[in-house]
Design a protein around this nucleic acid. Structure first.
Lengths: 223, 223
DNA sequence: TCAAAAGTGTTTGTTATACACCCATGA
DNA sequence: TCATGGGTGTATAACAAACACTTTTGA
């Protein structure tokens, strides 16, 4: 049997909460308890009894008042890089939140990804990891809907996809693909944005689960 | 400042080494040091100074004699599930190895995924996680080549893809896609398998990096 | 009545899939 | 010479992208 005390370490759970704010993604930061001038990702020491996912959800709930609509573990970090809690190991999570329904508790603020505050090296790696995961999951599951309120216009949905993919999309093609996938259904509400024809509101309601039987994907970037 | 000793825990790095053995994937197991009748995934207590990736690579090298051709962190596990080393947290990695060039050290054996030995609950989760990651990465990077020796026939490559995807592929279409992706180049060697025309040997040599500008992927399974 | 945004039918070009066939070798 | 697996040209089907157009509102 090994001697546990000689190999012990201190570990934390850190959460990267992401939302779509206007025309940019934004990440939630907390004022550091030790240095009120600094900001950090929300984090806590892990409880032995709790699963990591539960801890991450609890941390998110503490700063947002409600749990994220989607959460996933990014990775464990244990390089020598500095961490605000001086943790030996930090397990990082990424969570998505619709901007409309999320109201950060006092001391927490959204920062656009293009203009983040100074950050400990390890938490900077976490932010980068979260962006990579979002990009990757976008191609594997319809996580974009996790950033939208329960009802939304197709224009909003397309804008969000354009933001996440960083490229313009063709309106007609976008709607055709959406229709073929049976992911949304129209409500009987309409929203007028001031100028132009009012848009019908839709809700996320995935019906069929037909995975397109696509061929082998060789058209990939070499890592 | 927090009291580190009151929140300390013991953590390990575990490695799921995967190879393609005949017509099935196989995973490397080590005879348990305490109970010689039991098998477990290779694992070690993490060293504070080393990065997690380095530890995982070292563990793999210890049981295989050489590092894996590809390695990636699966996840950190900290649920209540049992672990052979009684770790509070285990960080799991998945590694790929070509079967032809890997020779496990004594006390280590490949088990086909369809016929694994009894396993601690946490390590079972790791095996499941490794399969999920391989399946997912297959659609994101050409990791199949990491399971092949430096040169191989297109028949072997196709068989491997059929194994990984669990479905038959059309020969001509497979080769057309492969050619369009500029991932392999022919060597001037040929291999005769006894029956039928000898096959030309190819090597993995990705040239272009043209990522196909595919549209929005809505055709996804809902998680 | 014009600008602006929503929403839709049809065409075009690209790509995956399949069919059909030839080639080379061992038994 | 036949069965077996390697290898390739050509047709067909599926799909993404684009074009062109109508609809509905506020100014």
């Amino acid at each position: 049997m090994r001697d546990r005390s000689s190999k012990s370490s201190y570990h934390t759970v850190d959460v990267v909460l992401v939302t779509a704010m206007g025309n940019e993604l934004a990440i939630l930061f907390t004022r550091s308890t030790s240095d009120r001038e600094r900001w950090s990702l929300p984090w806590k020491a892990a409880q032995g009894a709790e699963t990591l996912d539960a801890t991450a959800t609890r941390i998110a709930q503490d700063v947002l008042g409600e749990p994220p609509t989607w959460i996933e573990q990014i990775s464990a970090f244990a390089d020598g890089k500095r961490h605000p809690g001086n943790a030996d190991i930090s397990v990082a999570f990424v969570g998505l939140v619709p901007h409309e329904t999320a109201s950060p508790r006092p001391g927490n603020t959204w920062f656009p990804v293009g203009d983040l505050p100074p950050l400990s090296p390890r938490q900077r790696s976490m932010v980068e990891g979260s962006m990579r995961i979002i990009q990757a999951r976008l191609d594997q599951a319809p996580i974009a809907f996790r950033l939208l309120p329960p009802t939304f216009t197709l224009g909003e949905l397309q804008q969000l996809y354009e933001l996440l993919l960083s490229k313009r999309l063709h309106k007609a093609s976008f709607r055709r693909a959406l229709q073929a996938a049976w992911l949304v259904e129209p409500t009987d509400e309409w929203r007028s944005e001031g100028r132009g024809r009012p848009a019908q509101l839709y809700r996320y309601a995935p019906k069929k689960r037909r995975r397109s039987h696509r061929g082998v994907r060789f058209d990939l970037l070499h890592p």
